[in-house]
């Protein structure tokens, strides 16, 4: 059964042991066992890619390419698989941000259920959604990344520091600057 991605994650040492057991199976020729790792990590990684790109289609493409790359380099994993595959996805997102002008992308391509109670609520929330994504797109990628990891993925600063190989203090500053910048970009519309 797939792990509930909204539940508390396993302690790092436990999940690392479980991941390594799966990696050993894949490297021994059980290719389909790689699906266990995909199921285990695709939801949080999808949220990261979606938060960084603002596009469901692009997020899925980046994730798919990242997992295929991970599969072909699985023998090179040193340390935690989740941190390693996160870096592949995060780099894919940053490369996409560098190379693609994203203004032509439409939110219509997002086929996720909206989760809103009424059409009116969906209309109102759709506005903040468009505004927020437009404002996120205006941020430097390091600030967007920190904001998305903290507020969309719900990660702790310690976990973020571990994944991004930086300090908690630096990440708190990035999130703070991202919030300041987002407010400057959006407050006129909500005053």
């Amino acid at each position: 059964m797939p792990q509930d991605s909204t539940a508390s994650p396993l302690p790092p040492s436990d999940s690392a042991d479980l991941d390594q057991a799966v990696i050993d199976r894949v490297l021994a020729g059980d290719r389909d066992a790689f699906g266990i790792l995909i199921e285990r990590y695709s939801d949080p990684l999808y949220r990261h890619a979606y938060g960084m790109t603002g596009s469901a289609d692009v997020a899925e493409d980046i994730l798919q390419v990242s997992f295929i790359k991970a599969f072909h380099h699985l023998g090179e994993v040193r340390g935690r698989f989740d941190a390693w595959v996160f870096r592949i996805v995060a780099n894919g997102c940053k490369d996409w941000l560098k190379n693609i002008r994203r203004t032509h992308l439409s939110y219509e391509e997002d086929d996720q259920p909206s989760g809103y109670e009424t059409p009116d609520e969906e209309l109102d929330r759709g506005e903040i959604r468009r505004d927020l994504d437009g404002a996120l797109a205006a941020l430097p990628s390091s600030l967007r990344e920190a904001f998305v990891m903290k507020h969309v993925e719900g990660r702790s600063y310690e976990e973020m520091a571990d994944l991004l190989d930086t300090t908690v203090g630096a990440l708190k500053m990035r999130v703070h600057r991202a919030r300041e910048a987002l407010q400057k970009l959006l407050e006129d519309r909500y005053s």
Binding site: T6, S42, D43, Y46, R47, Y50, A56, E60, Q112
Partner: peptide, 10 residues
């Protein structure tokens, strides 16, 4: 956004 999941069949 925190409740989003990877597409079915991914």
């Amino acid at each position: 956004m925190r409740t989003m999941t990877a597409p079915a069949g991914f």
